[in-house]
């Protein structure tokens, strides 16, 4: 079963590498940010699988931190000055 989890984790890592293309080509800032958020979730899934595969419970805490702090970067992006939508508001 550990082998299986590790295999799924490898697969998810591969989808992340493919998804990097969206960050590279953009074109909008929002697109790139969305791609990174998707990586965040995929990363959490990988961490949970690795926690099972390596039998290390502290890895789950790292996953918890990732989900808890995922909002932070987007909030900084939306709340900071110089954003494009600001004028209409």
């Amino acid at each position: 079963m550990e082998k299986f989890y590790l295999g799924v984790a490898c697969f998810l890592l591969a989808t992340m590498i493919v998804g990097l293309v969206r960050v590279f080509v953009g074109p909008d800032q929002e697109d790139r940010l969305v791609a990174v958020q998707l990586f965040g979730t995929t990363g959490v899934a990988i961490l949970l699988l690795l926690a099972e595969a390596f039998d290390a419970s502290s890895v789950r805490n790292a996953a918890l931190l990732f989900t808890l702090l995922a909002v932070l970067a987007v909030v900084a992006f939306v709340r900071s000055p110089g954003s494009l939508g600001e004028r209409e508001e």
Binding site: S58, N61, A63, L65, F66, L69, A70, L72, A73, S80
Partner: peptide
């Protein structure tokens, strides 16, 4: 895992906020 925890908080949270 200690460092992974710190990196999760710093890399996903603080560094993103500061740089963005």
């Amino acid at each position: 895992p200690d460092i992974a925890l710190a990196e999760a908080a710093v890399g996903a949270g603080l560094a993103g906020v500061l740089l963005l």
